[in-house]
Design a protein around this nucleic acid. Structure first.
Lengths: 137, 137
DNA sequence: TTCATCTATATGCAAGCTGCACCTAGATGA
DNA sequence: TCATCTAGGTGCAGCTTGCATATAGATGAA
């Protein structure tokens, strides 16, 4: 299937949690100030090694963090290379991280509710002589 | 915050797994033929009671399932009310459900990898005399 | 010096998902 | 007759995301 067009969630059949990069970046920033390019590299910790994150998404999220008051930024010269925009998490951003953690825990509950329904269903399905289970009638 | 505009993921700070309704509908259909309106009601099992699913999304997904060969449909008269479009899962659709299950398991791993990073970080953070942990330097 | 490459940040665009508003229409009962 | 319920559907717009591309300083090799 060539010509994958553009945009969308072309990868796999649709995994991924909405805006999952946000909590990952917040957690990295909770560990200390950093800039976009460095954050991009450190995302590997969260399993973004295979299927890495797109840099444009990261830079956009960081700017939106700043607009919403979750971080402050300033330009800084590094030991080498071009100047970097360095981000520092604010206490408001810390609160936003806490919110995200609670949110992901809820996502986890939803996920496990699905697994539980799935396993429960499959057990009934198999103990009913295959393919005939309807759950009604 | 009034004037919530339209569209988007206005609820909470962004929970939700992309296209999560798909595996839920597939699992329900694996339990036997059904129609949109009935599926909508049965989604409560997956935690869609509070924050219920939108019917338009469901009908659209069902049509897309048919386009992709995961279900077949036919009109049927019920005991009461208007005619219904009844969907039956195909073996291809069953395979798609299996794919989704594997995919959600991967999502679960990613999620727990985050929780693990979070807890690990917070332990270090607290044992380092608060606010000074940088994870580097 | 020139040029490729790396580091670093950023914008434009289009595809895809989703919820809200709205529409159609048969069935049902007051 | 008319409101309401059941059932299915469309249009639209907001939002997220990945790809392509642009910019520009730093670095090192030819």
């Amino acid at each position: 299937m060539p010509g994958r067009r553009r945009g969308g969630s072309r990868n796999r059949c649709g995994r991924r949690i909405n805006r999952f990069l946000e909590p990952c970046l917040l957690l990295l920033l909770h560990g200390g100030e950093s800039h976009g390019y460095e954050l991009l590299e450190n995302l590997g910790r969260f399993g973004f090694s295979e299927n890495p994150a797109d840099s444009s998404t990261i830079y956009r999220i960081l700017r939106s963090f700043e607009e919403r008051g979750f971080v402050t930024s300033s330009w800084a010269e590094g030991d080498s290379g071009p100047a970097r925009r360095v981000y520092v998490l604010s206490s408001s951003g810390d609160g936003y991280l806490q919110m995200w953690v609670g949110d992901l825990e809820e996502t986890d509950r939803i996920l496990h509710r699905f697994f539980s329904e799935y396993q429960n269903h499959m057990e009934l399905h198999h103990s009913n002589g295959k393919k005939t289970f309807k759950g009604k009638e």
